[in-house]
Simulated scan of single mutants.
Amino acid sequence: MKNGKLKKLITLATVVASTFALVACGSSSSDDSKGSDSSAKKDSGTVYRTLDEIKKDGTINIGVFSDKNPFGYVDENGEYQGYDVYFANRIGEDLGVKVNFVSTEAANRIEYLQTGKVDLILANFTVTDERAEEVDFALPYMNVALGVVSPDSNVIKSLDNWNSKDQMIVISGTTAETYLTENYPDIPLQKYDSYATAKNALENGNGVAWANDNTEVIAFALQNKGYTVGISELGNKDTIAPAVSKGNDTLLDWVNEEIKSLGDEQFFHKDYEETLVDTYGKDYEEDLVVEGGAVQ
């Protein structure tokens, strides 16, 4: 009798435990699905937070460069600075939330958006048709083209008749890599993951030249003696714009309205004068700055 009662008790305990586990699992699933469009975000394969979710959290995660002076970099005090950072801080102020800067590299900007690591990318992100298939771009706030910088001892002024033994330095995931691969497939590319490593490679003579945004190579040549931008415009002129996860319409619409509003006060000219004028001077201001999202 005792053994029979014991078996019944064990059976009853097992049933109760199983029922509790099922109920608990159901509750967890319900909690995970909370939010206005959580299921839609998962179904699309992209994770993002809506504008309301960002406001409720009180923090917006913005991806910026940490090694691309003067656009996004960390100063000697460990603080983020630069043209993109200046804009990011204003976004946080007008949105009424704290800005959490997330250091990104060119090659992982799209990944950081798609996985929800950042809400917004402000990392010198050039607008292209290919990228627009994976992220949503807001209105532009800067003009840009590609450029090529090389040592004074061997200034590269043309990419025609390239020596097949020479290598061109590029950063993975940039428009320079895409452009050269498509238009100059015979030029060997030496690829790096960050701006710092690409600069070091050029300084160490690991490549004959470095192709990147003309703003970046012009800044490098102005800040480092012994280098010249032999090609200041390569290919078509493009624009730089903020990017959000594909389908994050609420945040995209807010950023677009913010850019239009900031144009009324000539914000991006002020941004240039606060962060870029020491590097480029006044001569480049009207060429580079886009106000209110309106490209001239």
Rank of each mutant, 00 (worst) to 15 (best):
V295M: 09
Q81P: 04
L251V: 12
F20E: 09
W162Q: 00
E105R: 11
S232L: 01
S18V: 15
V217N: 05
V102Q: 12
K225V: 04
N200V: 05
T128R: 08
G293A: 06
T275P: 02
F20N: 06
N161P: 09
W254T: 12
D67Y: 03
F20P: 02
D37A: 11
G230S: 07
Q114I: 02
N212S: 13
A198Q: 11
Q296S: 14
A123K: 03
P151R: 01
G82Q: 06
A107V: 11
D287F: 14
K260M: 12
N69P: 00
P70R: 00
R109A: 13
D119N: 15
E216L: 07
L159D: 00
E76N: 12
V85T: 04
E53T: 10
D67K: 02
Y83L: 01
A123D: 02
K41T: 11
L12T: 12
T174A: 09
K246A: 09
P188T: 07
S36V: 14
P70Y: 01
V255N: 03
E233Q: 12
S153T: 15
I218Q: 12
K191M: 05
T250V: 10
I60N: 05
V15M: 04
D152V: 06
D129M: 07
L139C: 06
G173W: 10
S18L: 15
K68R: 10
S194M: 06
Q167H: 02
V85K: 00
D249W: 08
D57Q: 12
D136P: 10
E93M: 10
G72E: 09
N124K: 09
E134S: 15
W254Y: 14
G35N: 10
S150K: 03
G207A: 09
L234K: 06
L9E: 15
N108T: 15
